[in-house]
Structure formats: structure tokens, C-alpha cells
Design a protein around this nucleic acid. Sequence first.
RNA 1: GGGCGGUUAGCUCAGUUGGUAGAGCAGCUCGUUUACACCGAGAAGGUCGGGGGUUCAAGUCCCUCACCGCCCACCA
Length: 763
Amino acid sequence: MEEKDSNSQPFQNSSIPEAFLKPYAPQESEHVMYALWETSRYFNPDVCIENGVTKADADIFSIVLPPPNVTGTLHMGSALMLAIEDILVRYHRMHGTRTLWIPGTDSAAIATQARVEKEIQKSEGKSRHDLGREELLKRIDTFVEDNKSVMLAQMRSIGASLDWSRYAYTMDEKRYHAVMEAFVRMYNAGLIYRGNRIVNWDPKGQTTISDDEIVYEERKAKLYTFTYAIDFPIAISTTRLETKVGDTAVAVHPDDERYKHLVGTEYDVVFCDVPLHIKIIADASVEKDFGTGALGVTPAHSQLDWEIADRHNLSRPAVINEYAKMTVDGRLGGLKVTDAREKVAEWLREENLLISVEEITQNVSTAERTGGIIEPLPKLQWWIDVEKPFVMKESHIKGITSGQEVTLKELMRISAEQGDVKFVTERFEKQYLHWAKNLRPWCISRQIWFGHRIPVWYRTHTLNDETIIHADNAVEMHVGITPPEPTGWTQDPDVLDTWFSSGLWTFTTLGWPEETADLKTYHPTTLIESGYDILPFWIARMILMSGFFLGQVPFKTIYLHGLVRDGQGRKISKSLGNNIDPVDMAEKYGMDAVRVSLIAGMVPGTDSKISEEKIRGYKHFANKLWNITRFVLTSVEGADVNHTISLLSTPHSPFYAELSSLIALVDTHFSNYRIDLASDALYHYVWDRFASEIIEESKPLLNGHDEEAKKVRQQELCDGLLCILKLLHPFMPFVTESIWQQLPLKIRGDERELLMVAEWPKI
RNA sequence: GGGCGGUUAGCUCAGUUGGUAGAGCAGCUCGUUUACACCGAGAAGGUCGGGGGUUCAAGUCCCUCACCGCCCACCA
């Protein structure tokens, strides 16, 4: 950009701050503004009270930041989340509300461990077993520490006015202890148990994963139809031939006329070298129209079959191990499942038992993190029983009375149905209720090393201790944060599902299990704000946990935002190369522009778009504001303006009336969580009204000879500017604060020094 | 299979209780006389996915069809 000839510079000898002689340069001031806010310590509501910014008995607005994973750097999705929350937080803080926003980061157990393991494998060619548990955890800690500092710096760069004095990490000491405490209490209430059930086993990651971590992939497969033996009366169909050596029954529909006469008969066959005892049973879960209408029941390797086995008291031989290899004797022994499948097909052909082979497409379950094909296996795991009634000693939840007996499932349903938690977007309530209704036992143990280790201890010798109960295998077990004696006890090697600890997040961040002042003051939190993609994972589990431990809902309102997509509405993905980095964009156009372009046109619950053109547009807007200031300052130079905070409370001209209705409109949009509409209204007022019309109309007035009219207009311009700065501050904190900091005292009047804590204009 | 969204200007989307179709970006024409060219002025552009219904009046309410997308379940 060329420097203007100094002779043509009209402000050469004026008192206009020099910064306004150039276009707005966000890069120079953003970090300075953030430092100013942070050192003021006003992000902390206690400091606001001490300094009279907030009254101690003011209304509460509390919100816990959904902790970003320490694995990554900040992407547009997290930037959107931070922007929305910061806008709401700044808005409430300026209203004099006692406002708390708690920052945190998430260890993201499986994702983080997988990431570090992969890097070590790549650079050193070593697996986690080569390193050992202790060494791997050390490496992960180093990785986390490195990443964390980058993450936190980026969160600051967004402008997030988080109370850093209350920062929490899911794996820090306080949170770790709270999670242990939670496990023990839930166990003692009888809601956590250890049991053998079918789990989703990921042979690649060598761990259990939850239903929610499964991704279905469409694949072509062969559907084989065959009989177990020449004299076996029913043909069955399957895509997983190799599991058939684990069959104990053939199930048919009770109403199926073809097979009715066979129900109850039993057969002994030798299938692929494996002796089987097959019982023919009738079960309503069988589809008459699929395949032959008869289902070979493999209790140990299918969720559905396991449940059928429950109903018919069948045995459940396991034939596949954790490495997806066959455990039977004979020709299949030790083979991988895919090879075994071929082998069985071969055998069927030889024996003339194969009736047909059909190409079908089916959904294969794969692990989200590793891509491994899920092998359903029976395993001894820890579970949360969501259907077991317990007594809720003290309930603050609408629809549940203290002392009432409820199940976790009912608790989740009632919290939403009675309106104790409200959804900003109604359709998510339907989704949530549907999910809560179909909730099954929740498997909370994971066979990885990084995470909250299960507080259960085992030893093989007996001891007379009342706290000891007997598990299977005649091993003694003790549930507690520490072992009953310093030696002789081994801790369960598994760690907890990351969502177990995340479910406690709204109250562990406030100091639970201690009964802290924070917990009393800020819980239930006012609002949870997150992407809709983690509704079942996280939102639902927080309601469960908070209900159980505190008899409260974790938050009163649920605001879910959508995905951030690219300018054409495509998902942001590495393969498309369409990623737009918020930090890069901020360097180019300023963070305010990034923030506003993220929330403009973003309706709660729907996906939104971001593009570089859009960001550029709002950069221009920031500059417009800058130049409006320049004009106003020039116009009132030497004039006698006198600003007091209360000025706006008595609108005495169309100008003030218009400002009042703008404030009212913005407030209405905020109360409906439509910050997109609020920012839109402000954008248009500032540009189309204030800049294009009011300022233009002012020019003849300011140059005219009617001194009274000139004076009135000068006052109006000042008040208008201050009002606009305040209204825009939540959206564009950097440029508005930059301007505020450079306003001459006579214009700022008796307002506070930091715009961040200035009083919201009153109508 | 079950559920839920969406379809409005070239592109991306608003449109609150039914009352004369809106914005941003792109594009077109013109303009650089001092807040801002990171600007201003102006014009153009839509039978609101198709069909039917309710109503004095429908982008908005109801029915139906088509297409796109998402979530859940999952057939062995």
C-alpha cells in the first residue's frame, strides 16, 4: 500500500490518534488486546465482583467449554464453538451477569494413544508392547504437553474470554481422583458390574469399543446357503461360514409352516472336523423371508445370537480369539477368519453340502479409529447397568422426587421430557429421547493404557476382609481407589471409556467430589454448547452422570451447532484439500472477521459454510468500523461533547429511538440464541444506516452554520459510536476494544476502561 | 427398515404469528469533490423443487410426488 502524500493528509495536525490514519491492522493489535484482557483478570467472575463490575447476587451464566482433544490443532469446528460461546459469554458479562466460562482440554484416550503409537511405530518401528506400559505413558504425556501449549495459545488467539484460573485437563490430578471416586460410588450403588457379554472387539486396536465408535462400511460379500450335514433337515445362509463351527442351534420363526414340525429336534453333526450339537428352536427375532428363513445360531460371535442363546439357554462355545483367529481343532485351527471362511467353503463343496453362493452387499462394522473389522466376542468387561433401579436420595430434577426409585435410563428420559433440560433446536430432543430409550448396557472398560485406570484390585489368595467380594475364577477383588494393603494386589489393567470421565465434566471442573462454592454457585450450568455430532456420546452421558451423582441436570439448555463446511457445502476433509485454517485466516484478515464469518448465517443445529471470500467481506466490515470512528473523531474535534452512561435511557430523538430498537432487537435475538440474526442486524445498521445514511446526512450539518444542530449531531455521533462498539463487542472483540482503547477520554466519558466489562447499553 | 432435515437470485443462505419476495458473494454499468476503493451510486437477476388442497390472501398451513442430505437400527 502506498503512503499518502503528507501534504494532502487532512489530520496532520489534529489530535486524532495516529492509528486511525491507516487502515485497521488486526495483526498488530489482537495479541495486545488479549494480553490487556488477560492481565485485567476480568475473565474470572470473582475478580469482576471484587472490582464492582458484577454484583455478587447477580444472575448466573455458567458454561463449561467442551474440551478440545489434545491430539489436534484447532480447526474451524472448534473455532466456531469458541466463537459462539465467547459471544454469549461476553454478552452476559457486559450485562452484569455473574459469568463463568471454564476452559479445558480432553485426553481423548483411544485417539491419543493410537496417534502416539503410530508415530513411534513409524519412527522407531516399535509397538507399545516393546515399550511397556510405563514408557508408553511417558511418551504420551510428552506428546500431550507439547500439543496442549499450542492448543491453548490458539484458543487465546480466537479471543476466548475463558477463566484460565479454573483450567482443567481430563487427566489432571483433581479430575483423575474425581473419576476414581465416581467409579467407586457407582459400583457401591450396584450400577457398575463386571460381566461376560458380547463386546465389539477391534482386533486391530486390540480393544473393546462402544457401539458409537463403530462405522458401517458397505462391502460386497458372498452369502452361502448350505446344510451342516447330508441328513440335516434345514438349510441355512450366512456370510460368515467360519463362525458356523460355533453354532449350537438353528432358529426359525415360530409361525414358519415349513419348519414347525422340526422345532425341538436335536442333531449331532461333524462340521469341518468340529463336532456340533444343533438344536432346532423357534424364535420370533428370525426373519422368515431372509435366506432360507432359518438362522444358524452362533452365540459367542453375534450380538443377536447371544440374545437368542439367553432366551433358549444354549451353550456358547467361542471359536475365534482376540486376534481374529480360529481356536478350534482340525483343519481350521489357527487360521485367520478370512482364510477359514475360504476353507469352510472348500470343505462344503467337497462334501456336497453347498447349495448356493450369492453376491450381496452388506454393512460391515469397522472401528472408527483403526478401521479394523469388528469381531463380536464374549469378554469379561465392566458395565454400567442403565436399567437397574436405584434410590435417588436428593433430587432437583423435575419429575423425580427425592427418595424415588429410578433407573439411569428413566432419569435421562425424564430430564428432557419434563423440560428440565431444554433443547434450543427441538428436533434434537426427539433424537435424544430415541437414543435414551434404546440405550443398552454401557461397556466402560477399554483395553488400552492411556486413560483413567479402573480402580479395582485383584489377588489370588483369600483374606478376611469384608470389603472383598468374590468374582469369578476364585480371584479376590477389591473396588477402591487404593488397594486394601500396600502389597499383594494388582490393579485391573483396563482403563475407562473416555466418555465415562467426560460425563462428569460439568461438575468435576467445579471441584466435585468436594462440595465447593463453585459447585453450589454454578451448577447446574446455564448452557452446554457443542456440535450435534456428540449428542449421544457426550450430552446424553452428562445428563446420566449428573443425575446420578448430584440429582441435578448438568445444564439447563442445550445449544447444538452444526458442522462447518466449505464454501460449496462440502465436508472439510484432507482428501478434498479444502481445509481452511482459522489461524491462517486470522493472520490474513483478522480474527474478528473469522469469528463473524463463522456465525453469520449459522442457524443453530444446521451446518454452515465458511469461505475465504466471506471472511474477506467481514474484514472490510472491521475496517468500516475503523473508518466510522475516524470520521466521528474528526467531526467532534474541539466540540463540547459530554458522554454519560445513562444517556441512552431517555431516547429524545428519532436517532436514539432507532438505537433503542436496535438494542431491543439484538437482545431478543440473543434470548432466542439467534446470534446469527443479531450480528446480521448490527452489520446492516452499522453499514447501511449509520455509515451510509447518518454519516452522510451529518456532513452538511457539521459544515453548516446552525450551531445548535451541529452540536446535537456531534453528540449523537459520539453516543452512536459508543453504542455500536458495545453491541458489536461480543462479536468482534478485538477491533472494538482496539478502538475503545484509543478513544479520547471526553468521548468515552464515565465508561469503564475496558470495553470488555463496559455496561451493555440500556434501552 | 425407522426417524429427521433440506429444495427460495449464478453461488451460499435468511425469510419470526399466512398479508407487495431479501442479504452476502460473484457478475454488469458508472463514479476516485477530504471517513473508508478494505469505497460509493445504479441497474439486472426468482412462476420460492413438481402437483393438489385450505384461505379474501400461501415461500409460510395441509396432502402427495420427486430429488439431495443426515441420524439410528441392521438380515444372519
